[in-house]
Design a protein around this nucleic acid. Sequence first.
DNA 1: GATGAATGAGGTTTCATTCAT
DNA 2: GATGAATGAAACCTCATTCAT
Lengths: 200, 200, 200, 200
Amino acid sequence: MRHEKVDMIFQAAVEVFAERGFDQAKMDDIAQVAGVAKGTIYYHFKSKEELFAGLINEGIEKLIECAGRHMDNDEEPVAKLQNLIKAHVYFFIHHAKLAKLLLNEAFGTKERQRHFRWKIREYIELIEKVLIEGKEKGQFNINHTLETASAIFGAASVIVLQKLYHMEDRKVAEMEKELPAMLETLHLLVLKGLANVTDL
Amino acid sequence: MRHEKVDMIFQAAVEVFAERGFDQAKMDDIAQVAGVAKGTIYYHFKSKEELFAGLINEGIEKLIECAGRHMDNDEEPVAKLQNLIKAHVYFFIHHAKLAKLLLNEAFGTKERQRHFRWKIREYIELIEKVLIEGKEKGQFNINHTLETASAIFGAASVIVLQKLYHMEDRKVAEMEKELPAMLETLHLLVLKGLANVTDL
Amino acid sequence: MRHEKVDMIFQAAVEVFAERGFDQAKMDDIAQVAGVAKGTIYYHFKSKEELFAGLINEGIEKLIECAGRHMDNDEEPVAKLQNLIKAHVYFFIHHAKLAKLLLNEAFGTKERQRHFRWKIREYIELIEKVLIEGKEKGQFNINHTLETASAIFGAASVIVLQKLYHMEDRKVAEMEKELPAMLETLHLLVLKGLANVTDL
Amino acid sequence: MRHEKVDMIFQAAVEVFAERGFDQAKMDDIAQVAGVAKGTIYYHFKSKEELFAGLINEGIEKLIECAGRHMDNDEEPVAKLQNLIKAHVYFFIHHAKLAKLLLNEAFGTKERQRHFRWKIREYIELIEKVLIEGKEKGQFNINHTLETASAIFGAASVIVLQKLYHMEDRKVAEMEKELPAMLETLHLLVLKGLANVTDL
DNA sequence: GATGAATGAGGTTTCATTCAT
DNA sequence: GATGAATGAAACCTCATTCAT
């Protein structure tokens, strides 16, 4: 188990970074929220950059792990994809601050952000793997698996984020009530397609 | 027509803001890129904030206008949606820097960013309008139109952004070659659905 | 007669300088209040410094001229001093903004302000002249004429300024109602002395 | 006892503010004179404004305390007033820089300066209290106590300031030689009145 | 004579990082 | 291990002044 203070710093950092973004987040604030002295952060982390990177890495890894775990509850690609999407939405709702950070900071051009994009790419490739498997089994009608994975990632992420921002500071409990609508929407969109007409 | 220097500043600002994000962008850099003195920017814009806001607002308005225009080339909702998506992807490819900014800065919690989210919401509601129309005509199989609109926005945006980041600084021409793959992907995803099986 | 615009600039300058002090006064504001373009000020005045100096000089000269004129209405030193004090108080009330400037800016160590102190010294020496005259005629009981002149200048100035600040933006008419109290006070103080006891 | 560096900053600030006035004083200069880094000032004071306000407040409070203490050495109002004036002149000579600041900055219209005027008013009301007491005991011949207090404040302040400015950077020792002349002058002016003639 | 867009030096303030305790 | 006072580089912004029209 990690050192107690390190955990407090980590928690405070997620909070503050999510609230203000990387640049506007002050080490002073993180220290205050964590209830430690500013120097203590620097005793455990080399720099603001490193603290942030650790945070994001751990976040994405958790996301990957969570998605992977739920995915494997089923055998069939269709079900796997459904599980993955469900896990993704769940994760974003229950780690709202981290979710904001991911979309917020993961699309910049700074060197630091390139690293994150690679980690997100890892996750997208996890999605792609299901798609490829389904395609090979003849269950998915896809030509460009990577592009499709990106699109699914975007759809599932933005649908939650929009809801989160729209509901401002509402509790997780209230967000969970919105879960079925979001999942049904993604199900219809991703798997069945919106069009009723069959000859497009 | 706006004043010449104002245009140069605007262009430079898009460039620099997209390159570095709001906080890391230095007014000095914008001035240098624009080929004007720093004071000139402040002669025309009250603050960095205002310059940025002007940029984003104009950007989203252009996007809305562009999407609206292409949408109306057809009568049928299905075609309208296709046109809209196509316009969206086109726009993001041809205004890559602006596109990065939109996703990058539009999901923060700062007051400034709340304003942008409202503008983006406007755009999402434009998408929703098509969905509602199609639903009423019995062409779309949708229960939650706003959520679906968000998801489509996310899918179409991220698919382009991922490609853009992956191709780093490649020319627009090269990006255009990727266009069909992206459009086909979104077409399959959004309209037909991925699943071959019909009884989900 | 001076050029019309020059006068407008002068008036505006008194206004703005008095309102904000030299450093906080912006040439933009002066231009706006004067109703001319900023460049116009520089067409007529070499610099902010020069504009300000012109203002103060003219102000003090007016004060000296005004005091001198009223003083000479009488022959007797006692009456002369009374007239002078009355003129001083009148002038400060009717040129409130200038009065503020005089006390405000005339006691700094900047080079510019040394010049003003010399001009104010001129005025104080005018007061001293009356005192010397009265002393020689055996009417004044004074040992240090210059010091006494300074003290009278200080007493008469601060009594008005305090009233002015205390009444904030009241009209001149209201200030004039306070005139007798101020004059009586200065009369008692300067000429008769406060003490009833005769053997100090 | 306050922190060592805070004291050094305070001292340096009095120095520099008195030398140049609020606006022309550079935080860089204060830092250099104090022998600390610029950031150190901001570690202890929120802003230039706050540093300055602290200075002036402490200054006026010292003045009030000093005057009050000396005043109470005697019982009789006449003696009290003499003591007060003596203390005032002493204080201004020994805190020349602060004295300059008081007159220099205390008569502006900026919000900050309104606060100072209230503090100075406190001091003037201290003077007034002696006058009222003397008036009630039949020792002072005064009608308007507040106006008289203002005038005394002005006389005593300007007499010292004029001397200070005239002697430029002379030592305190030399100023002290001038003390008797100033005190005698104020004594004659305030208590006995200048006029030899008794029927004014 | 008059204008106002453009300039850039210079000032205040912020904040990540260090280091003596 | 932990602290927080101290630092100074770097950023935003202001505004007196200039000059082409």
